Amino acid sequence: IINNLKLIREKKKISQSELAALLEVSRQTINGIEKNKYNPSLQLALKIAYYLNTPLEDIFQW
Rank of each mutant, 00 (worst) to 15 (best):
L22E: 08
P55A: 07
F60C: 05
R9C: 04
L5W: 01
L19W: 02
K13V: 05
S15K: 10
I33E: 00
L46R: 11
L22I: 09
F60Q: 02
N39A: 14
P40N: 01
E34D: 02
T29H: 10
Q28P: 07
Y50G: 07
E24H: 15
I14K: 06
I33S: 02
R27G: 07
I33C: 02
E24Y: 09
Q61D: 11
A20V: 02
K12P: 00
T54G: 02
L23I: 12
L56G: 02
L46K: 12
N31P: 02
L56I: 14
Q43W: 10
Q61W: 11
K11A: 14
E57V: 08
Q61M: 09
T54I: 06
L23G: 02
F60P: 01
S15R: 08
A49T: 04
I1L: 12
L46E: 13
V25N: 02
I1D: 07
K13Y: 10
Q61S: 14
R27N: 10
Q61P: 15
L52M: 06
N36Q: 13
F60W: 10
N3E: 01
N36E: 08
L7K: 13
S17P: 06
K11H: 12
K37T: 15
I48T: 02
Q28C: 12
E18H: 11
T29V: 15
V25E: 05
Q61V: 13
E18L: 07
P55C: 06
N36H: 10
L42I: 12
I48M: 07
L5Y: 00
S17Y: 12
I33R: 01
L7S: 14
K12F: 04
K35G: 11
L52N: 00
L44S: 02
I2K: 13
N36Y: 09
I1T: 12
K47T: 04
I30S: 00
Q28M: 12
A49N: 01
N3P: 03
N3H: 04
L44G: 00
L44E: 04
I1V: 10
K37W: 15
K6N: 04
V25H: 03
S26D: 14
E24N: 15
E57P: 07
R27Q: 15
I33W: 10
L52V: 04
N53K: 08
R9I: 03
E34F: 05
S26Y: 03
A49W: 02
E18W: 05
I14A: 01
S26G: 07
P55Y: 03
K37C: 14
G32I: 08
R27C: 11
F60Y: 04
I59V: 06
S15E: 06
K6V: 08
K11D: 07
I48E: 00
L7N: 13
A49Q: 04
N53A: 11
W62D: 09
I14E: 02
V25A: 03
R9L: 04
L44C: 06
E34M: 02
L7C: 13
V25R: 02
L23D: 00
E34Q: 01
L46W: 07
E57F: 07
I59Q: 01
S15W: 04
K35M: 14
A49F: 03
E24K: 14
K37Q: 15
L44Y: 03
G32H: 14
N36D: 07
I48Y: 00
D58H: 10
A49D: 00
L42R: 12
L22Q: 11
S15N: 05
N31S: 12
L22A: 15
R9M: 06
L52A: 00
W62H: 10
A20I: 02
T29M: 13
I2F: 11
V25G: 01
V25M: 05
I48A: 04
L5H: 01
K47A: 09
I33V: 05
K35D: 14
W62K: 09
T54M: 06
G32R: 15
K35V: 11
P40R: 01
L42F: 11
I30A: 00
G32Y: 14
E10Y: 05
I33Y: 06
R27Y: 10
P40H: 03
L56A: 05
E18D: 11
L52H: 00
N53Y: 04
I14C: 05
P55N: 07
Y51Q: 09
Y51T: 13
A20N: 00
Q43G: 11
Y38T: 10
L23N: 01
E10C: 08
N31A: 12
K47C: 08
V25Q: 02
F60R: 00
E18Q: 12
N3W: 04
I1R: 11
W62M: 14
L42A: 07
E24M: 11
L46G: 06
E24C: 14
K12N: 09
K35L: 14
Q16D: 04
E34Y: 02
N53T: 08
N3K: 02
L19R: 00
E10M: 10
I30M: 06
A21I: 08
I30H: 00
Q16A: 09
S41D: 09
N39F: 11
Y38M: 10
Y50T: 07
I14G: 01
Q28T: 12
Y51H: 15
N4A: 06
Q16S: 06
Q16I: 14
F60N: 01
K35I: 13
E24F: 09
L22N: 14
I30C: 02
N39P: 12
Q16G: 05
N53C: 09
N36F: 12
Q61F: 12
N31L: 11
L7M: 13
Q43H: 13
F60L: 03
Y50S: 08
S41N: 09
D58W: 08
P55T: 07
N31W: 11
K35F: 06
I2T: 10
E24P: 04
N3R: 03
K13Q: 13
K12G: 03
K11V: 08
Q43T: 10
L44W: 03
L5N: 02
P40E: 02
K35C: 12
E18K: 12
Y38V: 14
K6G: 11
Q43S: 13
N53L: 04
S15C: 04
R27E: 15
L44A: 02
N31D: 15
E10L: 11
W62Q: 12
I48H: 00
I14N: 00
Y38P: 02
N39Q: 15
I48W: 03
G32A: 15
L44M: 09
L52P: 01
V25F: 02
N31K: 15
N4L: 05
N3I: 05
S41V: 04
I59T: 02
Y51L: 13
Q61G: 13
I8M: 07
S41H: 06
K11T: 13
S15T: 14
N53I: 04
Y51M: 13
S15H: 06
E34L: 04
W62N: 11
S17A: 14
I2A: 11
R27V: 15
L23Y: 02
L23M: 07
